[in-house]
Amino acid sequence: MSNTPSVSRSVAVTVNGTTYQRDVAARTLLVHFLRENLNLTGTHFGCDTGHCGSCTVIANGKLIKSCMMLAVQADGAQIETVEGLAEPDGSLSPLQQAFSDAHALQCGFCTPGLMLASKYLLEHNPNPTEEEIRRGIKGNLCRCTGYVNIVRAIQNIAADSAEKGDLVK
């Protein structure tokens, strides 16, 4: 058999456009890989059962929880994390700005995951209803905001892009 199981592997993972080649243990979760091996500490974790969504990233265009995936499974993947959200000149993206304007973050711990969930939602549904927004961020727990201003931030950005007639980046 050409393929044998191994306890560690060499992986190439592209995060926010940069490709990282690393040896990683098979038991390492993607979230730990991002935080510990790549020092991308903007991706957080707040539980150990895949409920809180703080570790949410986009992998190969799909919104996922990085604590529910092994780092070895990300071999060859394209990953987007919070560190890649801002504009190239460092200014806030419209989504980040909408979160700030609506006071959609307090402690800011769940915020990276929530912004990625929002980005994914708006990419797939640029004009969501309130119900669709709430469904879209259901996998992300926030204990500070009661979700009210997060929903508003997403509504605001959807309304803005509708006005401008462009899709959310």
Binding site: N39, G42, V82, L92, Q96, S100, L105, G108
Partner: peptide
């Protein structure tokens, strides 16, 4: 006045420094 929060910029960029981020 509800001015923009000074904390937001770093938190929105994943540049906040939380306890587990310390090495």
């Amino acid at each position: 006045k509800s001015i923009p929060r000074k904390e937001d910029d770093r938190l929105l960029k994943g540049q906040g420094r939380f306890a587990d981020d310390i090495r």
